[in-house]
Design a protein around this nucleic acid. Sequence first.
DNA 1: CTGTAGACTTGGACCA
DNA 2: ATATTCCAAGTCTACA
Length: 444
Amino acid sequence: MDIERYGKFLIFKFEEKILLSHLRMEGKYYLAHYENSSYQKGLTYQPEEEDSKFNKHVHLVFEFTDESLLLYHDVRKFGRFYLFTYNDYLTNPRSPLVKLGHEPFNEKDGTYLYSKAQKFKKTTKELLLDQSVLVGIGNIYADEICFLAKIPPQKSAFTLTKEDCDLLVSKTQEVLNKALELGGSTVRSYHFANDASGRFQNELNVYGREGEPCYLCGTPISKTKIGGRGTHFCAHCQQELPSKKIRVIGVTGLISAGKSMVSSAFQKAGYHLVDADQIAKDCLVKGESCYQKVLETFGREILRSDGEIERSKLREIVVKDEVALTKLNSLIHPEVEAVIVEKIKDERKCFLLDVPLLFEAGLDKLCDLTIFVNTHEKVRRKRLIARGTMPLKEAAKLNSSLLEAIKKMAKVDVIIDNSLTREATDFQVKSLIEKIRQLNLISK
DNA sequence: CTGTAGACTTGGACCA
DNA sequence: ATATTCCAAGTCTACA
C-alpha cells in the first residue's frame, strides 16, 4: 500500500479504494499489534485503560494482513475521512483534493501567488490560509510568515506587489522548512504520534506572544481577529503608512489604553492637539451651542443649582439607556465636528485629533492617518482599576467592547501598542512621528 | 454571488 | 475551590 501527501491530506492508496485523511488539529496515527492488547480482529473496538494507546480517543482501527494495526487517535474528533475510487479521487467535485492550490515548495517565485492575490478580495493572512491558493499553511504559520515578510496580516491581498508575493513565498518556504526540520509546533495539546513534541514553537516570533516584546524592536505583540482567526503581529515591524501627505491625524482607543501618552508625544513634535472630549464638554456649558438642545431632551433634572449641566447625571442616564445615548450623541457629534473642522482649517499646521469615538462619529474622514492605541485587555483592566476613577462595570459599558476594538484595529492605518513599558510605547510613537516627517518631506 | 457566521469537538485556561 | 464560559484548530455548510 502506498501513502502520499497533498497539502494537509494523507492519501492512503488501498487495493481498490482511495482513503483521504485530514488530521485537522490533533489527529495522529499509532502503529500497534494484536499481541500488545486485548484487541480482537473484527470486533467492535473496546477502549482499554486511559494510559494505553488503545484508549477512548481511538476512533478508527486499520487491520492489516500481517496482523499489524494502525490506530487513528483524535482527542477532538476533528479529523475527517473521505473515501473515493482511483478513477475519481482527483476529479470528483466532492473530493477535497480538487480545490487545492499549489504546493509552496514548488514555487520558484511569487508569480503564481501574485496572480491569485490580485483577484483576492480578503486580507493577506486569509490569502495565505486559503488552501485553494497555497496548501499547507495553518494559522500559526500564516502569522509567522507575515511577520518575517514584514507585511501587516490585515493588508488587502490585492494591494500586494509582485515583490511582496516573492517575499511571502520565500518566507513560506523558510517557515515550513524550519517547522518540518524541528518537528512542527507543539502548542496546547498538539503532540506527535510518538508522544514527542515538535520544537518549532520555540522559534515563534509572534504566535501566542500577545503583550510580549517583539524580538526585533521591543514593541508588544498585538492580537486581533482576521477571518475569524486569532492573529498576532508586531504593530511596528508590520506597519504600512498611506503614501500621501499627512497633516491631520486621528487617534482613538479604549479608555485607559494610553491615548494621552501618544497625543502628548505628538504635541511635543509640534502637532496641535484637538481634544474632542473637551470640545464636547465646552459646548454643554450654559449658553453654548448644545446646552439648550440637551436641556430640552433630558429635562431640568440634569441641572445643578447654578444652572450648569451636571455631566455625571447625564452619564448616569445614558449608561442605562442606549436610545438616550444615541440621542445625546446625535445632538453633540455634529457640533463637535463643526468645531473640529474649523480648528483644522490652517493648512500650514499639523493636527492631532484625540477622538475616543473616531469611527463611530465618522470623524476618521477628516484624517489623513488614523491611529489606534491598543492595549492587552489584562493590562488595560489593571490600569483602569489602579486609576480608580470609575467602577469597572460602568467603564465597560461606557466604552466600546473589545470586539469593537478588534474591528477598529482592522480599520486604522497604524496601531500603537501600549501593553508593555513606557519605553516601548515611546519608541513606537517617536519612530512613527519620524516616518511621517520623512513621508511629508517627499510628498511636498 | 459574496461574505460572514455557525457547526463541528473537547480539554484547558481563565474568571467570578 | 468549583462551576462556567470562552477559546483554539481547519473546513464545510448555512444564510443574508
